[in-house]
Design a protein around this nucleic acid. Structure first.
Lengths: 137, 137
DNA sequence: ATGGGCCTTCCAGCTACTGTAAGGTCAAGG
DNA sequence: CCTTGACCTTACAGTAGCTGGAAGGCCCAT
């Protein structure tokens, strides 16, 4: 199977597959003409990677997950640990974004959004530059 | 004021300030020795940028916000529009992460996390590779 | 032989910095 | 006067994870 078909089958762009080979995530064999030859197993690996990436795991985490996937003697504990770490990272990120969102939503709401120059949003951004105008207390 | 003091005053690393100059976000004057000379106004701009970046605005959005900040004849509508777009992007991102989080949390919970190899997390990741084993329905 | 669609490699670019190297400047101390 | 050390300068490389494009090879149909 050539890279185009592997791309279609796995859902990953051919470019991405070449990149994954370059960084050692997969190692398809080669035909006589130099074309990559993907076995069914390779396509499974690619789909595994696609799914793991879609769940937000980093490339290095995917590498580790792949190793566990291929290791019949793995402990599910190791997989769970990776997933838990990732989950915590996502939770932190959500909390950050939520805080951002709340601040921003407040600013948006306070802004008239008309053709006059007065703007609480710009005032807020500038307030960091003029701490005399108090935001603590 | 040299770059070190501007960094302290604005909360941005000196490296970042040089970068901002390179991409044309600020243009401090220069002393005879080639050192950047930051006026109070420059430090205000830097703090403005720092705050806007902390709120998650992209560099290009910061450039636009800065232009509005400096334009006395701006319409607050333009600022609000930028902020609303950003807010929507954050909302979408939060929704994405939340969906991810839910999926991942389900997987984590279903995994025993012991020293046996059986692992619903890996099963899920691999399921994309073996659609015969059904996930729809 | 020629056209088109696939494949190959290599290099550049994206965001927003960050690190490092090699060197210039300046004030203090001996 | 010289050194030390903290500051400053530029330029280049690297980060994550691709993505686009150039230049060229392979293969099949006409």
């Amino acid at each position: 199977m050539n890279i185009g078909d592997a791309a279609t089958a796995s859902g990953l762009p051919a470019k991405t597959i070449r990149y994954y080979e370059e960084i050692g995530l997969i190692l398809p064999s080669r035909d006589g003409n130099g074309y990559r030859a993907f076995a069914t197993r390779d396509v499974h690996r690619l789909a595994f990677l696609a799914r793991a990436r879609a769940l937000g795991f980093s490339i290095e985490e995917c590498r580790a997950l792949m190793a566990l996937y291929e290791d019949e003697d793995r402990a599910s504990e190791d997989v769970k640990h990776l997933a838990e770490q990732h989950l915590q990272r996502i939770d932190r990120r959500i909390a950050e974004l939520q805080a951002l969102r709340d601040t921003l939503a407040g600013l948006v709401q306070s802004c008239a959004g008309d053709n006059r120059p007065d703007c609480p949003i710009l005032d807020d951004l500038a307030s960091a530059a003029r701490p005399a105008q108090a935001e603590s207390g």
